[in-house]
Design a protein around this nucleic acid. Sequence first.
RNA 1: GGGCGGAUUGCAGAGUGGCCAAAUGCAUCAGACUGUAAAUCUGACGUCUCCGACUUCGGUGGUUCGAAUCCACCUCCUCCCA
Length: 394
Amino acid sequence: MDIYEELEKRGLVAQVTDKEEIKQLINGGGARFYIGFDPTADSLHVGHFMALCLMKRLQMAGNKPVVLLGGGTGYIGDPTGRTDMRSMLTPETIQKNCECFKKQMERFIEFGEDKALIVNNADWLLDLNYIDLLREVGACFTVNNMLRAECYKQRMEKGLSFLEFNYMIMQAYDFWHLSEKYGCNMQFGGDDQWSNMLAGTELIRKKSGKDAYAMTITLLLNSEGKKMGKTAKGAVWLDENKTSAYDFYQYWRNVDDADVMKCIKMLTFIPIDEIEQMEGWADNRINEKKEILAFELTKLVHGEEKAQKAQAMAKAAFGGGGELPEKHVNVEFKTIIPVLVAAGICSSNGEARRLIQQGGVSIGEEKVTDINAPVKSGDVIHKGKKVHIKIVIE
RNA sequence: GGGCGGAUUGCAGAGUGGCCAAAUGCAUCAGACUGUAAAUCUGACGUCUCCGACUUCGGUGGUUCGAAUCCACCUCCUCCCA
């Protein structure tokens, strides 16, 4: 099976500029494509992960990826899909974030001579001269067209700053620059980037008369239509210090029934015919599918060893036996309330108290009824049915 | 630059002198039912030394026995006119 067909079967293809041309290009390994990453945080998250997977898939098919770090566009902030303005990042933060991104990416993509490139648009955007840019690029766009772009619609009601309005121009400029300098002929991105990407292909056509292509990837939405990879505590990060391997595993272990197959298709590298087989499995094997999903993804992100460990801990926590996730705490009073707070299970004493009063906490097999119940090192605390932690008091 | 309106507890959004820790919806957490799923029902959802007390309604002052609510100034934002 060729790569394009595989992408389609996995449900990754959302919009393309020219299906036949693109098919030929990527199937033949002739694409030099880029994907942009905005350094808005110090770690990549699940949303980026899909883009990385896509890069890897295309790289395996012989295409050459270019990772574009938005060190320059980070100064502007993409207004797409936002209802308010993004807080402006300081140059130091952007710099730091870029470095974090780079490190994490190196685990997925092979960089190097004639392989994949990593570039930072700060290198060319920061030196641009305003007047030159207006003459060269500004002339190629009409405001009328830009305003029609879907990504600005929402913001037309709330207010869109001129700064953010220029994001599209910058992204188009990037594409053009990469096309000139590295022979980049294609751009991939999330489906919400479509209008920005089209601006790029158009600019290239106008400036150099060359054809360039764009393809968007389906956004990973859950059955409720919300972006996946968000939890109450925030995004699901790829950095282990921000989201532990165990929590990462649990996130996928707990996805809705309706979303399991979609996630397996879009995110894992399990061959498509195996996936098709899994689709035929009986309903009662749904949990098996979730385990596969969780394990495969944890393996990709954190490595096989940690994935195994996470899986073992999950099985211990929910099935019994084996090693449980541990939490080290340092408390003055060794009773249940301060321990719950110190372990980060509850955010305040009041919350802990309420939880106990509602019967949501147990130590070992015993349900806690006394808000002053003692806790000793090595006790296993359960909160609800999903949080099981072994407490180690230091 | 001129005019109007606005800023409320995670979000949305009521409240316009005491009955307000502040309606309602969403999100979240727990209990019941389950499959570490969904749906449904129940409860909780500012903080604390929790039958009580304390701190919150953009900021700073003021009026008042009493202010999220009234006044003044400041900051930010929407909209209308330029």
